[in-house]
Design a protein around this nucleic acid. Structure first.
Lengths: 246, 246
DNA sequence: TATCTTGTTTGATCCTGATCAAAGTTGCGC
DNA sequence: GCGCAACTTTGATCAGGATCAAACAAGATA
């Protein structure tokens, strides 16, 4: 397990980034911090929390991947969030979970009891500022995702998802996505379908179609190679120059 | 025009709610606040800002309705936000607009120049806290919207939109939605289509279908009457007890 | 009143992605 | 190795919503 502490230089996964806390906090605040945080691990497939459950902690993903999703009474489900390391779960001021959280790979969370976390936020404005930035980023990506769900074709949806995962994977390794890059799909076909508002059969067909068109290559079922990034982006239907805006 | 000031009791539309500011700010901060804020008005249909444009202000809706949307190169557009009075536009720390903002009715914004606003946020943590709450609320509703876009049928989408608008309209009048309530649809059929990821023809057909099933009544094209709220909610496909969670 | 514009409804047809069904793959425990 | 479970692919058919087209309604303008 990835042992992480606020006192070390390389804390990259907590809502409170090392810089934000250590540059401003008093030492006793850091001690208090250690007292109220703890780790929880989950196996792939395990639920972290169900929608409606009381939520007595907030947390951030240390390692692994979790999904945020909603399920209708008849079983239709829509993923509404993909939580990668450093993403935040929970919400100060809220007592129950609004969505289901499920571990899709083995997962480690760094948790904070809610009340002390809120107290700490009050004392350390930098935490709130950081949390605001993260939430605004999530809101922006949720809104881009809405375009995918509402207006893109199945093929464009798959290309968009591959492009998003490629970007995330690249940034995890601190570099830009590039031609020839490869990465592991962290999601099953069914999870991809839940992400994109499709059925798993359609996902499978469109993945095959993109492979046939040489937009992507596959090693096994899960490893994707992107021979030509521009070609992939063209398939997403997005503006070619649609880079992230400051 | 709805003249509003931070010094009055009934400021309900600024990112900084009366309570949050007046309980904590020093008088000189309030004066500075007045110095950096100004109003802008737009006519129905006018653009407020285009995606990618430099954005030198943040603002909140005083009166009227605006939409946040994304358009693909071939013209497909998806609404990603519906901005009603008291909603916030813009983002501290960002220099250009990520989405198009368009006035759908006559619109008044209360604007703040970005730099002074950010300075003020730094000095007045309550503003950041308030903004965080608002952003988290928006993120939650964006995620519920994603379920609508990804998994609901056209009929369920229309019912969901009507239910959402009914809720918003009711809360504007400080009361709960109830049987027999009526309100004006603020959106054209085309805007409803852009909201829901449908075509305007499908919207028209499904509105007619809901009317025929007596789930809604119409006075003219725009005024909706909800004879039986439970029946409407049943048509959305949502859990009947799916009220907002604390 | 006649005309134009904008928004809406309705109809006919088509096509994308869903559904139902079956077979193929891969990994794992024994 | 074999059998089993989970995941994936592929095929055939269906249906919901898109598309194309035309008519309708209501306000604004002259």
């Amino acid at each position: 397990m990835n042992e992480i502490s606020f006192n070390t230089r390389d804390c990259g996964s907590c809502p409170i980034r090392h810089r934000a806390v250590c540059a401003r906090c008093q030492p006793d605040e850091l001690e208090q911090l250690d007292a109220i945080k703890y780790y929880r691990t989950f196996e792939a497939g395990q639920p972290v929390i169900w929608s409606g459950d009381p939520m007595e902690f907030v947390s951030s993903v240390v390692s692994g991947i979790a999904t945020l999703s909603q399920t209708m009474e008849d079983g239709r489900t829509q993923m509404v969030g993909l939580l990668l390391p450093s993403d935040f779960i929970g919400r100060p001021g809220r007592n129950s979970a609004p969505f289901d959280v499920v571990a899709v790979t083995d997962l480690t969370l760094c948790c904070f009891r809610k009340k002390p976390f809120e107290d700490m936020m009050e004392k350390t404005p930098a935490i709130g500022t950081r949390l605001l930035q993260m939430t605004l980023d999530e809101l922006d990506s949720a809104r881009e995702w809405m375009l995918v769900l509402g207006r893109k074709t199945a093929r464009e949806k798959i290309a968009s998802l591959v492009a998003i995962l490629a970007r995330r994977d690249a940034s995890l390794h601190m570099r830009a996505p590039c031609d020839g890059m490869s990465f592991e799909l962290p999601l099953t076909r069914e999870a991809m379908a839940d992400y994109l508002g499709l059925t798993l059969e359609t996902v499978s067909r469109q993945v095959s179609a993109l492979k046939k068109s040489r937009v992507i290559e596959l090693q096994g079922k899960r490893r994707v190679i992107i021979p030509d990034l521009q070609a992939l982006i063209a398939e997403t239907g997005d503006d070619v120059d649609g880079g992230p805006i400051t």
